[in-house]
Design a protein around this nucleic acid. Sequence first.
DNA 1: ACAAAAATATACCGATCGGTATAATATATC
DNA 2: GATATATTATACCGATCGGTATATTTTTGT
Lengths: 188, 188
Amino acid sequence: MDNRQRLLDCALSLFSLCGYDAVGVQEVVEAAGVTKPTLYHYFGSKRGLLEALLKQEAGKLLAVIAESAKYHGDLVATLENIAKAYFHVVQEAANYYRMQVGMFFSPPKSEANQAIQPYIRQQAEILEEVFIKAGADHGNLRGRHQRYAAGFLGEINAVIGLYLNNKLDLTGDVVYQLVHQFMYGIFS
Amino acid sequence: MDNRQRLLDCALSLFSLCGYDAVGVQEVVEAAGVTKPTLYHYFGSKRGLLEALLKQEAGKLLAVIAESAKYHGDLVATLENIAKAYFHVVQEAANYYRMQVGMFFSPPKSEANQAIQPYIRQQAEILEEVFIKAGADHGNLRGRHQRYAAGFLGEINAVIGLYLNNKLDLTGDVVYQLVHQFMYGIFS
DNA sequence: ACAAAAATATACCGATCGGTATAATATATC
DNA sequence: GATATATTATACCGATCGGTATATTTTTGT
């Protein structure tokens, strides 16, 4: 009865490791120990499988990030919470996060990119809102919220990239250094 | 008689737009107006076509970046030169740069990721060397060159991402703001 | 107990995948 | 002008692609 979830789990492993296009439907069902009509019963198509996977996993991620991004007047603290949340998600679901970032940077006409776009946009909105609200307290941020949100996430993903390649650990110290460098510069 | 170059050009367009896996050999040769044995004569395989493409395009990019990254005691000026160089490359060869970033973030077992790895490593080494040399002048940078190189490139790519989605222009002002925020923080 | 519906398997579809054997056509060398 | 070499085309290969028609099993509602 959990064949549906097992298909999702196997799809996540294979997609994140080899890529959506490179993985055949046959490969997914064999890994899950079922046959093709079972997959098509639950998901209708390969694309449907991908979208169900994103709905489940990206939904979880968005909830965690949104919770971490509540701004209460202290921008440094908020950014630290956000960085901590991303690092936590990556450590709990490295495969999924790798896949999400890969899909974001995948070619614009690929199915993978089109499927991830709505979730990426929500993510961007959450981060932008932080800088917009902080702009009320720090006037000179205004008009740059989009760039700051993208830049901050870019730095987070850069560090996550190092972590996924075993180049560094995601300690609390990294959170501190990342946020303070972003806020006060490289010498802080 | 320039069928070889035409194949490379068409492959670049298609790969960057739709992805390496999603583009068939047949599609490439049709776009180039030749037949399959012509492609296999020049490149031996689909993978060989990709590698020839990278050798040509990534080589050009690396030369430009390396030239821009010569450190002469002024870190701010060097980072501005690097950012300018990246922006210049992106404006001259948007398709290729999009493809390169996409391949960098593609799944670790995909052919695309494996093919781009050596070039990405060279790029990282160029950037890290800047921060290592700057560490001689600014002691408190030492031991963090890897993180700073990755973080700086992450911010550059974040801005480039906004540009490729028509969210902002790559003006000299963006260079200034990016580098100064990186060096002196968000309020600079 | 029985019928309706959900879930799974067998076997198959046409299309496309990357790749090639063979042969014809240019092009350059002598 | 003959010969060797590089280049291109015709036609094809087995394998895999995503997807499905049909039938059977399992579960559910009554």
